[in-house]
Design a protein around this nucleic acid. Structure first.
Lengths: 152, 152
DNA sequence: GGTGAAAACACTCTCAG
DNA sequence: CTGAGAGTGTTTTCACC
């Protein structure tokens, strides 16, 4: 995918606020409305822009208790790995899950209301998945940075 | 913030695709355009919806090497903590940074192009921050789940 | 809380150049 | 890439349930 400087700037703007009109963007980029329109459409069609979403404020919807949970499996048989991943994907509280190298197999980011909610999540959802050897939870004291923006 | 079931459904729809028209949403929710319009405005104004953004495909913009890096500081003096957090915030490669309880002080999510890029990031950016005692990197083998959607 | 209609306005999208 | 035009959606107000 060949992106020129204008495309990169455009993508930065859209990652900050995708509700800007083509008119506003054309002004910021020094191009005509049509030119910007065509570029956006190209970036959508070739999949560089995958979607447009609303970002909610976790503190206002009772999801402000964030935990990073490190999981080890008992074995790394393909069957166990696929089973674990499939089940994790269905858990709404898990917003991110990475299969990683190193001391653990997976690192999960979990968003819940409070400690009670987390305890409940662990007991009734996460640890009911088969073949988990151990979990280690790191509770978030503060969120220093959390952005969806990738700088090009 | 009092959210009824209709608000929750509306927020789910907007978290999946914020470019839907009020008309489409009114159809899905079984409400009038005006009713949906008023609800969306309310959710924007009271800050439940914090912003609307474009989500890019990491694989198409050379940011598909994701690392979770665990950082320990040498001391936890307020000055060192604030200094570290301030500097981390300026690093474009760091998309998330959490101050956590447990064996490490911080867990960072870092998005770069490849291992060479990561090495360069570590040597010229991260480890130039003062008072870091140690870092431990977990490389992502696969991204099992990664969503911005919070289920209400 | 909700509806439907109307009007003014702004934006999207296409097309010819 | 540009500018213009038709079509469509947004935003607001209104009377009303």
């Amino acid at each position: 995918m060949q992106l020129d400087e204008t495309d990169k700037k455009l993508l930065l703007f859209l990652q900050q606020d995708c509700k800007q009109t083509t008119k506003e963007l054309s002004y910021k980029l020094g191009l005509s409305i049509t030119a910007v329109y065509e570029r956006v459409r190209k970036l959508e069609n070739n999949g560089v822009i995958s979607k447009y979403v609303a970002i909610l404020d976790k503190t206002k919807i009772d999801k402000n208790f964030v935990i990073l949970c490190h999981v080890k499996l008992t074995q790394h048989k393909k069957e166990y790995v696929l089973r674990f991943e499939k089940e994790v994907m269905t858990l709404d509280e898990v917003t991110e899950c990475f299969h990683v190298s190193g001391d653990y197999d997976y690192i999960l980011k979990i968003c819940v209301k409070d400690m009670e909610d987390y305890r409940n999540f662990m007991l009734t959802k996460l640890t009911t998945i088969q073949h988990i050897a151990s979990t280690q939870s790191s509770f978030t004291i503060s969120e220093v940075k959390n952005t969806t923006e990738l700088v090009l």
